[in-house]
Design a protein around this nucleic acid. Sequence first.
DNA 1: TATATTTCTAAGCAAATGCTTAGTTTAGGT
DNA 2: ACCTAAACTAAGCATTTGCTTAGAAATATA
Lengths: 187, 187
Amino acid sequence: MARKKQYNEEEVIEKATALFWRNGYEATTVRMLEKEMGINQFSIYSSFGNKQGVFLESINAYKKRIRSITDKLSKSNNGKEGIKQYFYDFLEFAKEDDKNRGCLVTNTVNEIKEDGDPVIMEQLMDFANDIKQLFVDNLLQEKGNTVEEAARQSNYLMNSLLGLSVSSKVFDQSQLNDTIEFTFLNI
Amino acid sequence: MARKKQYNEEEVIEKATALFWRNGYEATTVRMLEKEMGINQFSIYSSFGNKQGVFLESINAYKKRIRSITDKLSKSNNGKEGIKQYFYDFLEFAKEDDKNRGCLVTNTVNEIKEDGDPVIMEQLMDFANDIKQLFVDNLLQEKGNTVEEAARQSNYLMNSLLGLSVSSKVFDQSQLNDTIEFTFLNI
DNA sequence: TATATTTCTAAGCAAATGCTTAGTTTAGGT
DNA sequence: ACCTAAACTAAGCATTTGCTTAGAAATATA
């Protein structure tokens, strides 16, 4: 046949994911991807088509990684306590060394503008809605909670989580802890 | 002496502000600024030095505009109700046509990375801290509230506000209203 | 070993970026 | 009316962007 690939696609995508997470989509150049992934531009384009292709694969890799905590939430039957734990788990998940990168998906939603790529936008929306649905499921475990009430609470909680994704880049851990505790005080 | 400027610097900065607000800092090119401000690149550079100079002036213009609602908050003596009103005022302030642009400052904090311009970063941090201080002041109007408690509550509220700056781009008004009402339920 | 097929290297492309500059137009003081 | 200093126009600069391509290197099969 022919020559073998000298890299593992999953491995190099993991590295790309880290770069996009740290840096955002637009600010990450193909030259930076080259260095971080450790492969040539030709290999990048032959494996993933284009920069957007690398990013979409990175989103998938991110989803796969975050599944460890979303799975935990979907299996939880502890009502709002399970969701609170998810908030703490998320902060831990988003931490790199001593600094926090926020959520890759939220970061991208924030970055992509109205003229942003619709393919990417849809991916991101689906992701956010999946998490919101998990919130609803868990909120309905609280006895006496109606579907309407759970929906409203999930909006509130998603807002807090989005806020946390931003706050975590700026504030310190104790401030974030206060915020989480307060968030769950009155639901 | 010499020829007179054919444009008003305040006016063209207003237009630049709108563009940065819609589009973010990096995504806004000097060519776009030319068109939006209605003046030539030479004029841009001679009046404001460089792209960053235009942006810093835009931040100032933004601060001046948002002062209408921060002033209202600083004059309020209605405790947490005054802050809640600020949240609603902010949503109205950030609206353009039927869509929401979020907060220019929050957008930029989200966009600027670790290697981002320190001058801009400091401007943005100062702005966020000013608002947080306003929260503390108003929270202390609630009788029996300690300074420590007010500080913790202000972290929580700032997190909600940051979340709202993101949420407002994605969710509809009724969802945002639910979120605000919930946010103020238990403080 | 020879061949076919894929992967690799590295050079290069057009377009876009922030910024500059050469040269023209305008206007106020003499 | 003339001159000087500022403001204009538009062309152009080097660099960076995402992406391509020509050609060399490697490897499974014949």
